[in-house]
Design a protein around this nucleic acid. Structure first.
Lengths: 369, 369
DNA sequence: TTGTAGGCGTTATCAG
DNA sequence: CTGATAACGCCTACAA
């Protein structure tokens, strides 16, 4: 019985009650609970609980008394206790890898903003490599989150575990082939094809490709899209090297391409913008290659720096804002409806012309779009 | 009594027990609890609990039985229930503003990594403007976090509320003057002075300053440091304009300085790197100003792009990695020891020479460091 | 080493 | 509208 632990409800004025309580709480190093508020306000504990539940039926007068007592004691409901019984924590797990890729911070910022707007808090799980996701999932189960947004490649079994635990899942920016999973993504394979198409249309024939790490499905899809398209067009096989999505990889990648090819390629496609910028800077400042005069460079993502005056990179924009919006919407509706249906929302990338790739055939001086 | 709700412990083989249970749980849409595991394993609930508490005394055999049953049922302890009684959630709040400032994502990545390494999860609170911090604190109280790392300006009262609630707090990269608060920071005022010192030593006399928003204490300290130093040296008053820490503000700021000054200043100090890069690009590409030949440009933070070949910005590095390490250490030790003591760990900024500012007097061709 | 029983702080149910 | 009372799932003396 909790009542035996708290002082008897001596009625000697509301203010002194609050003061007395504060002192007692401090002395015993206890937390302020709804029982304390109830005692000070002279109502039952359940009445206090109802006052903090929107839309519950409480009379004006008790509501006022309770709120006054609560304010006096600095009372705030305990979310852990609440979620224990309601089976809802209002916390959402966001699993994301913190690589050098500038794309992730931008996505995270958008996701956090959108989820906050919907009253969900974000429990953040970051990892160095996508392979670390397995360890992380264990923590996700523990923390009783209402759902998860995962920006990492999940195995078949991992997806099934989400289902088994009935935990709403939205996969962000990852294409899990062969699985019916809620996901929000950009068609990376198509992006790769698109870039190859635009560049070959301008007459580029010999390509270099600085792909992202093989562990990233986004990287492999972009690379495959570009390679397949080049192959279909009967162009010479591109020189493909691998980078780590960071700035330094762009320069290293170009260096390796030049070594293996023995000459400057017509165009270099990089697996993301950051590598493209590294490649571009290295070409211009270290090798004095004229871009786009002699060689074209293009990337993916349209991260902020790609748009800066020094670069104006030719790239494919991922509509991050809309993707985050879609992911937050999808997840909240899943949570609200206990929905099981799987929806895949695919966004089209937007081509950003920029000025680092020649996009018209040589000798074509027309200004036509 | 929970036992009346679960099937009687008929002993008919461990495997069928698990199967029977799984079916029952699914049917009733119940969660797997330690009671279920206990029943399947044929032990008491507390035995199960002990198996999941590191360093508890359990015999090898029961441990094995329990773990087998747990695995069969996909049991994972419920963190909410655990934190209710242990009064420890292993969750830390990180409050940070997601502005265009590239510094924050980098800091967040480091903080998350360091806290994860210490077994703490990160509950992320982002805000558009630092002024929104008040609303956010309400949520922080609710979620029973073990502590908080706040990268925003807190008022006197807000700090006191942390104390009243006995919630360990580490203020990150903010100088709360007049308060004894645990904090990890870089001396921004001194940074401003240092930059002014180095630039004036090279003979620059007329300065322009693109300061960050007045709502940011970091911005005002950097500005004041630079202005005070210039004043002490008896140099002409700098033209001070205000930006929002984003790329576009750098160009706008320079434009405004030129308008108000009527000529090109000797040097422009920008409140952070991103604005400095905006200013630099605008000067070079739009105005064809020779940097650093005609005008010097410098920033603060040493964010990644400042180091790219196109820029090689003169700036002051904040040792983010060490600061995150210090913040995580400070907070965990506060949590562990219930410590009340206030410690302020101030890191010195590191000067990055770069190549966008002339750092030697005109006519001085010496190569001395 | 193991089991029993009480409590953590809340919400939900159901009489009054 | 209000107040008892029973969960929610776990940890932790305490006794065996």
């Amino acid at each position: 019985m909790r009542k035996t632990k708290t002082p008897p409800p001596v009625d000697n004025g509301a203010d002194s009650k609050a003061a007395e309580y504060k002192a007692a709480l401090l002395r015993e190093n206890r937390r302020v609970t709804s029982y304390d508020v109830a005692m000070v306000a002279g109502v039952s504990q359940s009445a206090v609980s109802r006052c903090f539940k929107p839309g519950a039926s409480v009379s004006k007068s008790t509501y006022a008394r309770v709120m006054k007592a609560a304010a006096g004691l600095d009372y705030i409901p305990n979310a852990a206790a609440r979620s224990l019984i309601t089976r809802r924590s209002n916390i959402v797990a966001v699993v994301i890898s913190h690589t050098a890729n500038l794309y992730y911070p931008e996505a995270l910022a958008e996701l956090s903003a959108q989820l906050t707007r919907r009253g969900k808090r974000v429990l953040l799980f970051t990892m160095q490599h996508e392979a670390d996701v397995e360890q992380i999932l264990g923590d996700v189960w523990q923390y009783q989150v209402d759902g998860a947004i995962v920006a990492a490649a999940l195995s078949e079994e991992q997806v099934q575990e989400f289902e088994r635990r009935r935990l709403p899942l939205v996969v962000f920016n990852r294409n899990l082939r062969g699985r019916t999973v809620n996901s929000v993504l950009c068609d990376q394979y198509e992006s790769g094809r698109l870039l190859a198409t635009r560049l070959t249309a301008a007459g580029h024939r010999q390509f270099g490709i600085v792909a992202g790490p093989d562990t990233s499905t986004v990287a492999t899809e972009r690379r495959n899209g570009a390679c397949d398209k080049l192959h279909e067009l009967g162009l010479p096989a591109p020189v493909v090297v691998t980078g780590q999505f960071d700035y330094a990889s762009g320069a290293r990648g170009l260096r390796e391409i030049l070594d293996r090819l023995g000459r400057i390629p017509d165009a270099v496609i990089c697996g993301n913008d950051v590598m493209a910028l590294g490649c571009l800077d290295y070409a211009r400042h270290e090798l004095s290659i004229d871009v786009p005069g002699t060689m074209s460079v293009a990337g993916f993502d349209a991260v902020e720096p790609s748009n800066w005056l020094s670069y104006n990179l030719t790239t494919l924009r991922q509509p991050i804002h809309n993707m985050a919006l879609a992911a937050a919407d999808l997840l909240t509706s899943l949570i609200e409806t206990d929905g099981r249906l799987a929806e895949k929302r695919t966004f089209a990338p937007q081509f950003v012309e920029g000025a680092t790739a020649r996009l018209r055939p040589l000798g074509d001086d027309s200004l036509a779009a």
